[in-house]
């Protein structure tokens, strides 16, 4: 018997992996974006699980919007990344330190 907790636990694991990815990664900003996608996937998992077990379509609607926003975010993030690479000739996270000044 699959309970809600199974799905939630799975989502929690995926979420934690995404978090770890953000912390570990120091070289490639694209990986950061991918980890963000992982985090969003974990959240979507929760929504769909709750939607199913609560018999409520709203959770799925929410996922729909999250997917939309995530797609937009990915597009804009990648565009910024391209501009960044064009200007700094690097996507190394360790070199992105201008905020410090």
């Amino acid at each position: 018997m699959l309970a809600l907790q199974s799905y939630l636990t799975l989502a929690a694991i995926v979420f934690a992996i995404g978090v770890m990815g953000i912390i570990i990664n120091r070289k490639n900003i694209i990986i950061l974006l991918m980890c963000t996608e992982l985090l969003l996937l974990a959240v979507n998992f929760n929504f769909i699980a709750f939607s199913y077990f609560n018999q409520d379509i709203t959770g799925q609607i929410f996922v729909f919007f999250i997917l939309t926003v995530a797609a937009a975010e990915a597009a804009i993030g990648l565009a910024i990344l391209v501009v960044l690479y064009r200007n700094k000739d690097s996507i190394d996270v360790q070199e992105l330190q201008t905020l410090r000044e």
Binding site: V19, I22, I23, N25, R26, I29, L32, V93, Q94, L96, Q97, T98, L99, R100, E101
Partner: peptide
Amino acid sequence: QTGYIYHYALMMVIGL
């Protein structure tokens, strides 16, 4: 304030 993204992210995660 190191300016490294992952430091800020780490702080966020610790907060979480």
